[in-house]
């Protein structure tokens, strides 16, 4: 693990913070603290972290989203259990008997209810309960629950940051703290050598609920070029390695009609010149990332996508290989170095 210690420490600290879509303040504060080492930082009206490094050359926007999927409290029932809706693309199949934290007036531990077998009907066999049919057990009466929790409070899935074999780790919200870590690591690798390039870094809010943070942040920046860093699907049993990326095989360079082809090709060339491990991710249209919003914000922005392959996306055991984050950081740094003219 020591080879990737910088990335590991960044990711672990970022994953420990709470930042469900629309309630990103805690994670934003942690990320802003890390970004301040390199540039002036502020929080946008929609809650994104925005860092700016002035220059009179090309203006490059680096984006990764700071929010994470979760749940939102919709009601407290007469027995003190919390009813919920999903906040972002949460997965009903991983809910039963999972540990959660309810972010009320203070943080409260809870367990997602799991239906005992004697209550299951034949129709329920092999099926997970939907979001309307589970509730959160916080071990409080309605009266006591109402003192701490109210509708609108966000709920996150609890998770430790587990080191697995090799350089692999598992945690909740690797999507997209891995992207945030990659950008911070790229700034570390650049050691301030950004030449005359103007750099805007955006850790955007609300990606999981539609990309409002990136849309508005990119409008304000009006950059010449943007690189968004997100996570994408890695192969696993029942997920073909021909169709999807492989863990530990490098950063994924995106190709799509909505991504700038010249930028994609430059990234590929730079990866080859600098012996950075990469793989391709080809999409026929929408990328399902902030690129879709950044590209069409304001007058428009040339946009590229780098993805970090992960398994078990949108669960509390998102799994990635630290080497892929490091390779992503190296490629971002190489791109900025070239575009800022510092290697000329």
């Amino acid at each position: 693990m020591s080879e990737y210690q910088n990335v590991s420490l960044l990711l672990k600290a970022l994953c420990a913070a709470n930042g469900t879509s629309g309630d990103e303040a805690e994670a934003a504060e942690i990320a802003a603290g890390m970004l301040k080492k390199y540039m002036d930082v502020e929080i946008s009206p929609l809650g994104s972290v925005i860092g700016r490094l002035d220059g009179n050359g090309i203006h490059i926007l680096l984006d990764a989203h700071i929010d994470q999927i979760g749940l939102v409290v919709t009601a407290i029932d007469e027995t003190g259990f919390l009813k919920v809706a999903k906040c972002g693309g949460s997965d009903a199949r991983v809910l039963a008997a999972s540990d959660v934290t309810v972010h009320g007036k203070k943080d409260v531990f809870g367990v997602v209810t799991s239906t005992p077998p004697h209550l299951a009907s034949k129709d329920d066999e092999g099926k997970a309960k939907g979001f309307d049919d589970v509730s959160i057990d916080i071990g409080l009466s309605r009266e006591n629950a109402e003192k701490i929790v109210e509708p609108g409070d966000r709920i996150t899935f609890n998770s430790s940051f587990d080191e697995l074999l090799g350089n692999r780790v598992a945690s909740a919200c690797i999507d997209d703290r891995a992207g945030v870590a990659a950008i911070l690591r790229a700034l570390e690798l650049l050691e301030g050598k950004t030449g005359n390039a103007k750099i805007t870094v955006m850790f955007s809010s609300q990606e999981e609920t539609g990309g409002s943070g990136a849309l508005t942040g990119a409008f304000s920046a009006q950059a010449d070029e943007a690189i968004a860093v997100d996570v994408s699907f890695a192969s696993a049993p029942n997920i073909s390695s021909e169709k999807y990326a492989s863990l530990g095989m490098g950063t994924m360079i995106g190709y799509s009609p909505s991504l700038d082809f010249e930028m994609s090709k430059s990234l590929k060339r730079l990866a080859e010149e600098n012996e950075i491990q990469y793989q391709n991710e080809v999409m026929g249209g929408r990328t399902g990332t902030n690129c879709d919003e950044i590209q069409i914000s304001g007058r428009g922005c040339k946009t590229a996508l780098l993805s970090i392959p992960i398994r078990n996306m949108h669960t509390a055991v998102e799994l990635c290989d630290l080497s892929d984050i490091e390779e992503t950081a190296k490629l971002i740094a190489a791109y900025i170095t070239e575009r800022s003219g510092t290697n000329a």
Binding site: G89, G126, K127, N312, M313, V317
Partner: peptide, 21 residues
Amino acid sequence: VNGVFGIKPIHLVDRENETKL
């Protein structure tokens, strides 16, 4: 050693199978 039970991401699952375990 640490391990996790993996699952195919919900994004890659057909709508009608969203709650199928």
